[in-house]
Amino acid sequence: MDSPSKDNILCRLHLNAVLFALEDFVAVVPEAKQILGEENFSITFTTCSKLKSTVKFHDGKCDFIGAMDAPNAIKIHFLSERHLNCIFTQSGFTLPLLRSGFFRLKQLIVFKRLSTLLGKYLQPDAKTLEEKTFRSQHLKILLGLMLAAIKELSEYESFSRDLLKSTPDGLAFFTIQDDDISGWIQWKDDKVNYGKGDAPYPPDVRIVFEDSSIALAAFHNKIINMAEIGLGRLRIDGDTAFAERLGWMSERISLYLENGRS
């Protein structure tokens, strides 16, 4: 497989990780649910390179259905992967092409309001994060995004793929001790699977964040892991090499999404 370009990888992260985060966002943020109201619709994003993702809003919730088709979806097309990346990072001015859904202005406005609010939840200011409920919501949304992003990197980024290939199959479970947040990632038969909540099997490595402030700092690469492990605020038991590799991958996600580089 040819190594995909950075634009391609970033585009995949936007389509399959950031859009995936809408699921949790609508589920955990009451304001998002309020904006959605009783609107039922789907939006499909496509690029000239044939990347595609669809999100479906129905009954007050959001389902990410990936590359599957949704009937009667609003279709938004981007001229290039870079074009999509610019729109997702709000750094471009060329509007995408609306291929279907011209007359569904109300639903487009709902989606625009949801995506703007999602941006605030994904990249909040420091003061907002001090509020415990917001922090918990932020972490839940970010966790979903990170899980999906790790899967994308494992499939399309050679560096990440090589990292995982150099470790045995395993299942990592992570949890935030003072919050109802947990998830797992499995590397098995050259594939990443993931989920939220309890692990389906006994994990090979358990990663425990003592509280949400440590988790938050860890997710944003603002802690020194060795120090926090030494102090016991971040605990890793079992296959530490696997955990270490996941940590390196999560750093790369931040580099892509926050700086548009790797």
Binding site: I224, N225, M226, I229, G230, L231
Partner: peptide
Amino acid sequence: LFERAVQVIPGGIYGHNSPANTIPGIAPY
């Protein structure tokens, strides 16, 4: 000592001597 170390030394103790490389919380630092 470790709390002092993390203030002034990256990771508190780095390299192969980092407690993260043994049994953190149990091993001698």
